[in-house]
Design a protein around this nucleic acid. Structure first.
Lengths: 246, 246
DNA sequence: CGTAAATTTGATGGTTTTCAAGCCATGTGG
DNA sequence: CCACATGGCTTGAAAACCATCAAATTTACG
């Protein structure tokens, strides 16, 4: 192919044109004007297609790049001394993986593709420089980080299994942004969901079953159709609250 | 008194001489050389004695000062939409309250004295300036913050009531640093402990009772004497692990 | 098409919460 | 000085909730 024989810099520029990116509305650069978008475009090294199970990085590895998810899903996790996995977060289209310790030299956690996933690879050094000169982009990044923090704190609270699962589904609906009325296709399995919510796999199953019996949603494997959004929100309500009220 | 009629600047300097402070070994400036200690001394505005229940600050208030605890105990907490208190942390001698959002203009949480408490009032603006020119002090502050973060993450794990209570007591023993063999006098009540550990008050009571029956410690109201430190550590062990293993 | 993995369901048990009541210390007013 | 009220602490009994174990069913994929 012509693209494959072109110089690397040109190939990258062609492969990652943020202005024409079909997934732009999910991305960090959504709503940004052309100038800001192009500046961001400058730190995108290239795109990559990752198969399910592909390891992006592990603790201790030199943190040279971050990843902006175009499609698919990345999960991050830690391993405790006994080798037990502990899911820390899911990253969907538009999310950025690898900023956990923004100023650190090394990644503190594991990151793995949950399903076949497409990412833009970002140079962290360039990103730091860019954000220092662009208040708009810096603001976007800070927003993302504080969202993550709020999520982590909300997970810390002691809520019932149903509250957790309901909150998780509602959040997924917002983040996956399916077309109105269309079902929700969860990228991750029950085990990962349960681990993330700190529940047993079976408990997540049962919560889903009860929701289905009550007519709140329909479940078919990883496809979930929310039928009564308000009722689900009523269940999740205590979790949704901002914990760091100000 | 002569001190009361002296100029404010002089009075402060007399009242808060970090080099001669009897509680210096508990303070952030412990082990610092005279020069660094004096620089820190410069940001201490004055000392204050707070009665139990005294409010230091509330969410939304302009975050002009931080507090270094000399003696006593400060607790921080948030209120959810239902008005339920959620204890976020306890600050003992040597701890600094009011850095929760280091760069924010306003405090994000409540802070109240749990018992009669003595604090040094620190000017946050001066502190920022000082830490930017003193790597040693900056390092100390970062250490404190990452300790808090590690604590918050450890609390997020799902541990049994006994594990939580054991870990709490061990941490208190280290932080209150009683004389060897002397009992531990907890400043806070059972309700605050339970709320902090996300347990019912009764569950904390029962854990303490069981520990006493097993001979791990002796309980007399808020005075706790640890009799078998190793056994207590064995109970708490899973909690002590670094969650953010790297 | 068949095996392995994921999901679901059922049954059981353990831990913690909840509700309720009693105890003990402290402090107040008579 | 005592009676009494108050709030914190403790203990008991019951129920709720979730984890665990076990097994059936479905799905994914070579």
């Amino acid at each position: 192919m012509a693209f494959d024989t072109a110089p690397a810099s040109l190939r990258n520029a062609c492969a990652t044109n943020c202005l024409q990116c079909p997934t732009r509305q999910h991305c960090l650069v959504r709503d940004l004007d052309a100038a800001e978008t192009l500046r961001w475009n400058g730190i995108v090294e290239h795109m990559a297609n990752l198969p399910a199970g592909k390891v992006l990085f592990e603790p201790g590895a030199s943190a040279a790049v971050a990843y902006s998810v175009r499609a698919g899903c990345i999960k991050t996790f830690t391993l405790d001394a006994q080798g037990n996995e502990r899911v820390r977060g899911f990253y969907l289209a538009g999310d950025i993986v690898g900023l956990d310790a923004l100023t650190e030299e090394r990644y503190p956690i594991h990151a793995v593709a949950v399903v076949p996933t497409q990412v833009c690879v970002l140079a962290r050094g360039d990103m730091r420089r860019l954000t220092q000169t662009s208040p708009v982009l810096m603001g976007r990044l800070v927003d993302r980080l504080s969202d993550s923090l709020r999520n982590a704190l909300a997970l810390g609270g002691d809520y019932t299994a149903e509250q957790r699962v309901a909150a998780f589904l509602l959040q997924m609906q917002v983040r996956l942004a399916p077309l109105p009325g269309r079902p929700l296709r969860l990228p991750m399995g029950r085990r990962d969901i349960a681990n993330y919510l700190r529940l047993a796999t079976e408990t997540v199953c049962r919560a889903l079953t009860r929701f289905e019996q009550r007519g709140l949603l329909a479940v078919q494997d990883r496809e979930i159709t929310i039928r009564d959004r308000e009722a689900l929100q009523a269940v999740a309500e205590p979790v949704a609250l901002r914990e760091l009220a100000a």
